[in-house]
Write a protein that binds this DNA or RNA. Structure first.
Length: 579
RNA sequence: GGUUCGGUAGUUCAGUUGGUUAGAACGCCAGCCUGUCACGCUGGAGGUCGUGGGUUCGAGCCCCAUCCGAAUCGCCA
């Protein structure tokens, strides 16, 4: 039976359909009254089609964004529009039916919604999403989901849905908690990641697992970080090595980016760099490898300096072609450093006449000579120098490298440059100078028990790897520690009581005593992948119904108060209402 | 929690040193217009200048407080 609303969509009619009687339905995109003659265009997800209205009374009461169904004959246009996919034809309306009325004054013009303030767009997200430019990003997200899912099924991964109502994890980000009615006074936590479940799946005999998994973290947002919830492509493989995980992920990532983007992609195998090498060369564990600048450690050049600002400091230098930049350029850079709580930024310019700059007079001839030879700076280049306590110097040098790369336009925006960062340290020192897990207590220390017993703990590295794309951490994973004895050992080294593993991680600890295969895995930030593929600066653009910066849903008005009955059910009393 | 920028018509914005009735564009309403496609022309409606207090003869503008939005730092194993 024929659909009562439409027989064709708004994107498919061409010259071939001339003469046919058709019905199309959609939103009124524009209305143009030319006196005795009038045109309207109808938009749906597939495109826009023009309708010619022989009698103006036929569209009485119809305004923009009304949903209508138009029945009529496809005719050739007298004046064609080359900028329109359906620009050769139009429909001569015989009958118009109003299916969904629309208020005459809209909160914003649909076709210009991207120019509107974001809180208004979010409140009327259904209107915003009618804009083809906005709409297409969510469509692309759907296509990528489909593609990735198929890809993993083709690779014989099993898709498993893990619980949303689960237990609070003892480390990591702040949990979202959900009160339990049946267990008065107790709470679920929403998963920050399906980490423990996927490892349990390995113990359950699932050979390879994947899931496009919702993850929840109650932390403040950023432009590229959604408040509250986000999605990961989560995977885990049994009897697997690091190398095998890396290969699978490269396969999926390369094919996905090739399928959905026209930009060039770094060839597989992606380049690899150790964590320590990345920190040395780029002062970052997520370097933007499109940026040609590198960081040079010049601490030893100033080891005996008389210059108080450089004395007893870790000193990092970056050489960049910035000599001809105006004073403001250097002042702005300094502001960036100060924003990151740095004391300042020194710089010297290498010119035909020698080395100039405000700090030059404080440095000895020998120091300047050594600085030039160590950094290999050439005439026309500026040496930027950061002198701080070690951790801060590294951080600021990383910030400076990114800022210089951007401001000096050294970055190829048409390239996806992937790099693996490998061999993350297993331990680090915390604020109190005590040994702590640097990433993930579940990853396998390289060298196993031997290195735990014999090596300096800070020199032990883990089978822990990140996939970095253009300076963004796109994925993180590890070979897991599946040995209960080793688990206890590393927790003990990190200063935890003997029973912490048994109590806090009882599920894993128990399961691993009943035969678990060695396993490894990784999780990719799905929303960030879509950001890259749609060239979006803001993560909200790739989410159909995003929360605002205060983690509020302006459309459904969440979070909201609940009734006293609901509170009573879960035995909760609100202490005080903070407005 | 800190910092920066912002909040004026439905939307995007302008608003001079504090001075008459707060403007523009788009949108909306009415009229005109037979090939438009960002249609055009004429006219019109539309404002608690985020909110509260203060200074002043007089506040959109200055001061204080507060709310809201965005970015960012902290935070995000």
């Amino acid at each position: 039976m024929e659909n009562p609303y439409r027989t064709k969509n708004c994107g498919e009619l061409t010259e071939k359909n001339i003469g046919e009687m058709v019905k199309i339905a959609g939103w009124t995109n524009s209305i143009r009254l030319l006196g005795g003659l009038c045109f309207i265009t109808i938009r749906d997800e597939f495109g826009v089609t023009q309708v010619i209205i022989p009698n103006e009374s036929m569209i009485k009461g119809i305004n923009k964004e009304c949903v209508i169904s138009v029945e009529g004959k496809v005719i050739e246009r007298i004046s064609k529009n080359k900028n329109m996919a359906t620009g050769d034809i139009e429909i001569e309306a015989k009958k118009i039916e109003l299916l969904g009325d629309c208020k005459p004054v809209l909160p914003f013009e649909v076709m210009q919604s991207e120019q509107t303030k974001e809180d208004v767009r979010l409140k009327y997200r259904f209107l915003d999403l009618r804009n083809p430019l906005v709409h297409s990003k969510i469509k692309l997200r759907s296509n990528v989901l489909h593609f990735v899912r198929n890809k993993f099924h083709d690779l014989n991964f099993t898709e498993v849905q893990t619980p949303i109502l689960t237990a609070s994890s003892p480390e990591g980000a702040r949990d979202f908690i959900v009160p339990s009615r049946l267990n008065s006074g107790k709470f679920y936590a929403l998963p920050q990641a399906p980490q423990q479940f996927k490892q349990l799946l390995m113990a359950s005999g699932f050979n390879k697992y994947f899931q496009i998994a919702p993850c929840f973290r109650d932390e403040d947002p950023r432009a590229d970080r959604s408040p509250g919830e986000f999605y990961q492509i989560d995977l885990e493989m049994s009897f697997s090595t690091q190398e095998e995980v890396l290969q699978v992920v490269e396969n999926v990532v390369s094919s996905t980016f090739a399928q959905f983007s026209n930009k060039s992609i770094s060839k597989s195998p992606f380049s690899r760099i150790s964590y320590s090498q990345a920190m040395e060369t780029y002062c970052s564990d997520k370097p933007d490898t499109r940026n040609p600048l590198t960081v040079c450690d010049v601490t030893d050049v100033f080891i005996a300096t008389e210059f108080s600002i450089f004395k007893n400091k870790t000193i990092k230098a970056i050489v960049a072609p910035a000599n001809n930049k105006p004073r403001k350029f250097f002042d702005d850079l300094t502001k960036v450093i100060v924003k990151y709580e740095g004391k300042g930024l020194a710089y010297v310019k290498v010119t035909e006449e020698g080395v100039i700059g405000s700090v030059v007079k404080n440095l000895s001839q020998q120091e300047l000579k050594n600085l030039l030879s160590k950094t290999n700076a050439k005439i026309g280049e500026t040496i930027f120098i950061i002198a701080e306590e070690k951790t801060k110097a590294i951080k600021l040098a990383g910030v400076l490298r990114n800022t210089l790369g951007k401001e000096l336009e050294l970055i190829n925006n048409n390239l996806f440059n992937f790099v693996w960062v490998l061999d993350f340290p297993f331990f680090e020192l915390d604020d109190e100078n005590k040994l702590a897990f640097s990433h993930n207590p579940f990853s396998m220390p390289q060298g196993g028990l031997n290195s735990l017993e014999a090596k300096d703990p800070l020199s032990i590295v883990a089978y822990q790897y990140d996939l970095v794309l253009n300076g963004v951490e796109l994925a993180s994973g590890a070979v897991r520690n599946s040995n209960p004895m080793l688990m206890k050992k590393v927790f003990k080294m990190a200063g935890y009581e003997d029973d912490v593993v048994e109590t806090k991680f009882s599920a894993l600890y128990n399961a691993f005593q009943y035969g678990v295969p060695p396993h490894a895995g990784l999780a990719l930030g799905f929303d960030r992948i879509i950001m890259f593929l749609t060239d979006s600066e803001v993560i909200r653009d790739v989410i159909a119904f995003p929360l605002n910066g205060m983690a509020q849903d302006l459309l459904l008005n969440a979070p909201n108060t609940v009734t006293q009955k609901q509170l009573d059910d879960v035995n909760i009393q609100i202490k005080k209402v903070i407005k």
